[in-house]
Amino acid sequence: MKKLLVFTIFTLLILLPHTTLATPEFGKKESRNCDYCHISGDYTKLNSRGEYYLKHNFSFEGYKEKIEKGEGIGEKLYMRYCQGCHGEVNDYFKNKEINEEVISVIKSGKMPPNIKLDLNDTEIKALAKYVGYWCNLCHGKMLPNPEEREIHAEGHPSSLKHGEFWCLNCHNLNDRDYLKLINGKLIPFNQSPELCGECHGQVYNEWKEEIHGRWVGSINNPIADVICVDCHNPHSPKFSPIEPMPTPQEKLLSFEPANYRNIAIAVVAISVLLMAYAGSGRR
């Protein structure tokens, strides 16, 4: 029995460091994460990059990325420099907004392959635009912390002025590319109205019947692809007051009934006088 216990402890002692600190020397040497050479999720297999590395005497020298697949400059650059570690960008976030944080991180030189040197400003901008504010760009590489707290991260919404809510009432803890309904069902960001509708049912129904919202497009095809968050900021839904445009110059006639009464009295008085005058003349 004692032998078995000692054996297990020894086995664990030998195995544990290897599983937790499994960055092999190749990874350290190239300062790359696992996903760079292995297929994400199944690290027993190598991707094309890893295969090249293996076949060319553990060196990337002469390796050319297959970047023909990408359409825009941003996508090509992403596939060459970022996809290895960060994985594929969620379609919903692609080419939506320029992520300023990405620009500053690349320029600071914090990214492992020093891509700051290779790219000019327009290319970095294209890359930041392609990625957009894609949650898993950072959260995919972070351990989830479900504790309720203030968030201090650049390029991240810091305050939440939407009822008594906390991020994880709507966002999913383990995969931030999804939102979570009350029943636990995960929905992608482009189906967010379903989530909004859980509290704002009446407005949600009106929106579905196309009687809520700003009208754009033509009369026959009114609200085209506009969802709640296109107009309402989900983290601070209240609209701030705006400045009114200048007051009108033109003065309109006052239609106060009192004025009419005076005019009516005057007209009656004058006509009575005229009639009296005409009557006196006939006599």
Binding site: P241, I242, E243, P244, T247, P248, L252
Partner: peptide
């Protein structure tokens, strides 16, 4: 008709 505050509403 001629209201003009700094901010509306």
């Amino acid at each position: 008709h001629y209201y003009s505050p700094d901010k509306v509403p």
